[in-house]
Write a protein that binds this DNA or RNA. Structure first.
Length: 753
DNA sequence: ATTCTGAGCCAC
DNA sequence: AAACGTGGCTCAGAAT
């Protein structure tokens, strides 16, 4: 059999006429092939993981007689050779059959406490009963995934005391029993009432959908998706695809096998068109599972009172902040973007022409060289400058060569411009929401393992969203304040260093913030014994060498960089860098002990705590044993061991960084909640954005000095680290990034009258 | 034609 | 021996 396979493969490759006879005899052979032989032939080929899985499913189903080969096509005399393509077509047929039988089974086994509500009187009575429950589970089904356009087609409610799960279909559900859309009003007192608390899975979505109907979902007490992330931020390690989907969590934690919407109905299915008997069992199961997940999670989290308190008072309250932040969105100056984009395009074009002319003689391909292709550019550029380049990394490889070679200087500028226009200036204008006419970002509170926000596009949403947290300075100029308003940005001055000062109680750092001095200079003073002024700023206002060096060492320390890397950063040898770090540790014993303590803790426990035990970062690899490698470390046969050991090193590096980054994120989040509360008391005030250590407000442009003072107080007083005062820098802008101090603002206002 | 991955680079 | 933490987007090139 092995031999046959090899011959077959060769036959495909060799099409010369002399082999025609051989081919014919082989075809005959193939037609006599048994199904088992065909499977061996097909499975011995190269397949993707998903194809391989499908092929095995089909093979099993065929051997169990669940499904057979495709029927003979009309007009054909004999069965074609069994092929991979046919097997995959059979798989589609099979999965359709399975989906249908699964749905039938679901409906047949609808629990007796799942109730479909299609009568106005029944709905009113249900709301009355729900008002007597202390806490319920809520979920919505909708026409689509655009929270500014789509509408609710059904609401699920779980009443835990009554122990009944309801599904209430509304128009435009495609069934005459669905309630008229306006009857969603009957739910208003329940949804807007704060006496009945609510549990949801991914609450932000349902909050936004109710808002579409003019109903505010108030009293949210728990989000089972968000809470799961608090309980295990590493869920994707075990469930790579949509790890926080309700159905996956139910399958894993409630031992309740469940299918996602897509698995059950296929991609692109519309909920409004699903028959009501199926909609009931699916919809009611949603809040049923959400409620059970809530019980499981709250019992577990209650064992950690600080985490419980933090989750329920900060992260849950934050949902309302995010809802407003995302809905408020941004306004872009499209005229500016267009003009700026044209200017960049012209610059890019002339640079491109010059570089192509210069580099073409060194390019081996037939087509014109693509300047964006590393594969083409690396060899061509290496030849052009007569030096083998390891990569095309702008910062590390190209920048040091730019003064020697004009082509590299021009290439760097070309890369900068095309990145700027391609990712930002030309792209962002296309993402305006057709209905709201604004640009909407996303602030994902479970997007990072450290508690920071991530920003970008929500996979589930059909709203065009963008990452607002990585906009470069030149792109920020497109963002303008709404008419009659200004943007006021306030950052936490040296947030992470203050956090470390407090957590470590390092005297040099505590002293720095007490005296209002520069922390890096204070560390340098401690290390060198030189006077403060001498290690801080030069007479011309620039940083001293010592301050610069200390800033780099600080980062290396916090990120757990090796001596090798620090040497690279400082432009010294590994040995020199190691000596420097050693001496630095000796001169700062308290800070040093704190850093070592973090590593000890994570090695013993496999996790670290963020400020006041409010969140955990789980780093299980920190507890692993290193795998001993006897021989050449780079030998490919040790790949598994290297990866294993690398994970341990990574976990140890992350221990300190997670504590610092996470604790700082907690400070930012608490400040956001308080700022949002404050904005609600002020006409025309709103939060506009957050970028890790920075909050940006939008406020009416006739603001006063007292208003600025109020923002300052929100920043400095909302959340403090013991023993360290907060600091903030405030700027006023009408265009993002083009700021002035409040003093300058008021001065220019007086001058212009 | 669509989906995935890696390189590279934007932010803090 | 390896060698910097947290993210997201674009493009090229490959895989499907």
């Amino acid at each position: 059999m092995q031999l046959n396979i090899r011959l077959n493969t060769e036959a495909v490759a060799d099409t010369s006429a002399s082999d025609a006879l051989k081919d014919a005899s082989k075809r005959k052979q193939a037609s006599n092939e048994t199904l088992d032989e065909a499977w061996v032939r097909i499975l011995s080929g190269k397949h993707s993981d998903s194809d391989l899985r499908k092929l095995h499913e089909v093979k099993r189903a065929m051997s169990e007689g669940i499904i057979g080969r495709e029927p003979l096509k009309v007009g054909k005399k004999s069965m074609p050779k069994f092929s991979k393509a046919e097997a995959l077509r059979i798989w589609s047929q099979l999965s359709e059959m399975q989906r249908e039988s699964k749905l039938a089974e679901l409906v047949a086994n609808t629990p007796s406490n799942y109730v479909l509500v299609t009568d106005v009187g029944e709905l009113k009575a249900l709301v009355d009963r729900a008002m007597n429950e202390p806490i319920i589970a809520v979920d919505t089904e909708t026409t689509g995934l655009d929270v500014y356009v789509d509408v609710i087609v059904g609401v699920s409610l779980t009443l835990p005391i009554e122990n009944v799960h309801y599904y209430i279909p509304f128009e435009p559900t495609n069934d005459e029993r669905a309630l008229p859309a306006e009857h969603i009003e009957i739910l208003r007192p329940l949804i807007e009432g704060t006496s009945v608390k609510k549990v949801l899975h991914n609450a932000l979505y349902d909050m936004a959908m109710f808002r579409r109907h003019g109903i505010e979902l108030l009293g949210v007490a728990w989000d089972t998706q968000h809470a799961m992330h608090m309980l295990n931020e590493n869920e994707s390690d075990t469930t790579p695809n949509k790890p926080y989907a309700l159905k996956h969590l139910a399958t894993k934690y409630l031992k309740e096998p469940s299918d996602t919407f897509g698995e059950l109905f296929g991609r692109g299915a519309k909920f409004a068109e699903i028959p009501l008997d199926i909609a009931l069992v699916y919809g009611a199961k949603d809040t049923d599972l959400t409620w059970r997940l809530y019980e499981f999670q709250s019992q577990h989290l209650a064992k950690y009172p600080e985490m419980y308190e933090y989750y329920t008072t900060v992260e849950v309250a934050l949902l309302y902040v995010i809802l407003d932040l995302e809905e408020n969105g941004y306004i872009l100056d499209l005229d500016f973007a267009k003009q700026y984009g044209q200017q960049l395009a012209e610059q890019a074009e002339s640079l491109k022409a010059w570089i192509i002319e210069f580099i073409s003689p060194y390019h081996e391909g037939e087509d014109v060289i693509n300047l964006n292709s590393g594969q083409q550019m690396k060899p061509a550029l290496s030849k052009a400058i007569g030096k083998e380049l390891p990569n095309l990394d702008a910062k590390r490889t190209l920048k040091p060569l730019k003064d020697k070679h004009e082509v590299i200087a021009k290439l760097l500028e070309y890369k900068r411009i095309t990145k700027l226009s391609g990712t930002y200036i030309d792209t962002l204008p296309t993402k305006q929401h057709p209905k709201t006419k604004r640009w909407h970002s996303r602030f994902n509170p479970m997007g990072t393992v450290t508690a920071r926000f991530s920003s970008g596009k929500d996979d589930e949403s059909s709203v065009e969203q963008f990452n607002v947290q990585n906009q470069p300075y030149d792109a920020r100029k497109m963002f303008v304040a709404p008419k009659g308003k200004v943007l006021v940005s306030a950052d936490f001055k040296a947030q992470e260093i203050r956090c470390v000062a407090s957590m470590s109680q390092e005297p040099a750092l505590l002293e720095a913030f007490k005296l209002g001095r520069d922390p890096y200079a204070m560390l340098a003073m401690q290390y060198t014994g030189l006077p403060y002024e001498q290690v801080n700023k030069n007479p011309d206002g620039s940083d001293t060498e010592w301050r610069k060096k200390m800033k780099v060492a600080w980062l290396a320390w916090l990120y757990g960089a090796s001596d090798f890397t620090l040497g690279d950063w400082l432009g010294t040898t590994k040995t020199e860098a190691g000596k420097f770090m050693g001496e630095l540790k000796e001169s700062l014993p308290t800070l040093s002990a704190w850093l070592d303590g973090n590593v000890d803790f994570v090695k013993r426990n496999g996790y670290v705590w963020m400020h006041k035990n409010q969140r955990k970062r789980r780093l299980p690899a920190a507890k692993w044993k290193r795998k001993f490698i006897n021989g050449d470390y780079n030998d490919p046969k040790f790949a598994t061991e290297r990866i294993h050991n690398g994970k341990i090193s990574g976990a140890l590096r992350m221990a300190t960084n997670a504590r610092v980054q996470g604790s700082s994120a907690i400070q930012t989040k608490v400040t956001m909640v308080k700022s949002h509360e404050y904005c609600k008391t002020r006409e025309g005030w709103a939060l506009w954005a957050t970028v890790h250590d920075e909050l940006i407000f939008e406020i009416p442009d006739d603001f006063t000095r007292e208003d600025i003072e109020a923002i300052r107080k929100l920043m400095t007083d909302s959340y403090t680290f013991e023993g360290v005062e907060n600091g903030t820098d405030i700027e006023v802008m009408t265009v993002w990034g083009e700021g002035m101090t409040p003093t300058e603002w008021f001065k220019s206002k007086e001058e212009t009258g």
